[in-house]
């Protein structure tokens, strides 16, 4: 079966958000909103998101990929990316997906902080279910980890001939400027149990997600993936993440649920 070409689109207030709508041949039976992660995770997982959207289209599931304000091709400089705005953009994207696909049933998908944003936007975006890939559920932990990674990048001998000053590296996370608002909002955020079914696809060792069921609620289930995504490995900061097992697992889940 042939994949319909994705349609670039601009939507939201002042058409400030960039998206790619993946239509299906014929009527879509359901639709999936693909919420990207933030920063370098977004660049690294771009290929997987495209492959997932193409695979979904072959299964009759329409999909929308999009960039939050201040990220990717959407309007706004990187340091204006803001947690509240990301959540609002996700709700706007869900409405855009419904309008384009004609489907009222929308499933949310998100990797890393994209999973956290999908979780936060699920109620306002009227999502029926969430599929999360290695989600980050503790904002304070994320801030601490990103600060440490930025400090390591600053002194990385593979990147810089000599360590860079703290001033040069300040207010950035792994290549992206970070506004004070995003830092504060993320630092104070922690996942609360969802009221809709949540399925988590975990590529990391089981010990790292032992408390996910408690954090995500009784309706959550964890599926272990066979390969480990190298999200936090500094040496692989500019390597694309590949995850054929994730794409298969999401497809299997949707087939079983149909």
């Amino acid at each position: 079966m042939r994949v319909e070409p994705a349609q670039p689109c601009q939507f939201g207030s002042g058409e400030s958000l960039f998206g790619l709508y993946h239509p299906v041949a014929g009527p879509a039976r359901t639709a999936m909103l693909l919420c990207p992660p933030l920063g370098q995770d977004m660049i690294r997982s771009h290929r997987v998101y495209r492959q997932l959207a193409d695979a979904l289209a072959l299964q009759g599931v329409a999909a929308l990929r999009f960039d939050y304000f201040g990220t990717g091709d959407s309007a706004g400089p990187s340091d204006t990316c803001d947690w509240t705005r990301c959540v609002a953009d996700t709700v706007a994207a869900a409405a855009e997906l419904r309008a384009r696909s004609g489907c009222s049933r929308v499933i949310g998908f998100g990797a890393r902080l994209g999973g956290a944003i999908a979780l936060e936007a699920a109620a306002a975006g009227r999502m029926a279910e969430l599929l999360l890939w290695d989600p980050l559920l503790d904002g304070h932990e994320s801030v601490t980890r990103l600060d440490a990674a930025q400090e390591a990048l600053r002194a990385d001998p593979m990147r810089f001939p000599a360590p860079r000053s703290r001033e040069d590296a300040a207010d950035q996370w792994l290549g992206f400027p970070v506004g004070a608002d995003l830092r504060r909002q993320l630092d104070g955020w922690r996942a609360t149990p969802a009221t809709i079914p949540v399925r988590v696809f975990a590529s990391q060792p089981a010990a790292t997600h032992a408390d996910w069921p408690a954090q995500l609620g009784a309706g959550s289930a964890v599926v272990a993936l066979s390969s480990t995504a190298s999200w936090d490995v500094l040496d692989r900061l500019e390597h694309a993440i590949l995850a054929p097992d994730l794409i298969r697992a999401v497809g299997d889940h949707l087939r079983a649920a149909a």
Binding site: Q40, G72, P77, F176, A240
Partner: peptide
């Protein structure tokens, strides 16, 4: 730039 999509490394092409 390499395999990075059009936004460029760290969004360089957008800036």
């Amino acid at each position: 730039a390499g395999m990075v999509h059009r936004v460029g490394p760290f969004r360089l092409h957008v800036e």
